[in-house]
Design a protein around this nucleic acid. Structure first.
Lengths: 160, 160
DNA sequence: ATAAATGTTAGAGCTAAGTATAAGTCAAGC
DNA sequence: GCTTGACTTATACTTAGCTCTAACATTTAT
């Protein structure tokens, strides 16, 4: 089964512009051309396209992805390099997810903060009396509540 | 306690250029100026700066963050809007983390794929014999191995 | 009191990742 | 045989988020 650039674009939900851009940047050296110079994608190419999409999702710049694809086409002598590359990406992504987890916890704490303020009708309930600074004991209270109430009614009341 | 733009930049590990850029984009309307027009940050501002950094971490564009900061300065009448904003960001981030989890799983699968290839000295062990296409039963084998071997020696052998 | 450091603004420049345009080629349907 | 639509290349434009420069002011240390 063979595919034109337009068909691939549609399948992957990206534009033909993007695909040509990727090709120019060296992400698609495996794509064949027909007699009149048009790109012809084959089924096997979708494996590469999946890898490209995954590495993009992981946040890698196009040049690094091009690099990896190059290694893939270079044959068995680059197997170890490819493995090390993946180990590195795994580590980076794990770190990224850990910081996103902290970000998420911050958002939840702020949600709780505003829920409290909404209940009182004013943000003042979260401030040190007489100031406009957040009561520094408040976050600890929130954390305690999350900890004990995980999966219970306590947490349920945090949700919508 | 008061801080110059340079001191804040150092604390936050960002450049003064970036801070001025943020100010220009409306992220820092709470920052005061002294008689000669220089920015003067106060302790209370670090709460906002923490929020800004969190929202950046979550991947929000600068304009949306400026929007939220504006709501914060508008007083209690925007409490509900701020709460809804946070709910939306929480949802978006949860979705983002779910797709990153898939990405991570793909990276681990590929790591396993290359570990197999390395052990054999050639990628051919992963192909349908005679072709250059990946054996389609392979990923299921990997998934099964992950599932049963979670936290055991099986998984340990996947690591370095 | 003078040099060095730090600040100010306006505006130019840079990088990444597309996105669009122009001018042309090619294959299919009427 | 001619129009339509999908393709080709090269090149220009766009957006986001900085990053830097220039020209000038102010503050700090010697």
């Amino acid at each position: 089964m063979l595919y034109s650039i337009g068909q691939v674009a549609e399948k992957l939900n990206i534009s033909t512009y993007t695909l040509r851009y990727y090709d120019k940047e060296g992400l698609l050296p495996f794509v064949d051309r027909n007699e009149s110079g048009r790109r012809v994608f084959k089924d096997a190419d979708f494996n590469y396209l999946e890898t490209i999409s995954c590495l993009k999702e992981a946040g890698l710049p196009v040049k690094k992805i091009a690099n990896f694809i190059e290694l893939c086409l270079a044959g068995d002598r680059t197997l170890d390099e490819r493995y090390e590359f993946l180990v590195e990406q795994e580590t980076d992504l794990e770190e990224k997810m850990a910081t996103l987890q902290h970000t998420l916890e911050y958002l939840r704490w702020k949600k709780w903060y505003y829920k409290r303020a909404l209940a009182a009708g004013t943000e003042d309930v979260n401030y040190i009396p007489g100031t406009t600074e957040t009561d520094p004991t408040l976050r600890a209270k929130f954390e305690a509540m999350v900890k004990e109430g995980a999966n219970s009614k306590e947490l349920g009341s945090l949700e919508k």
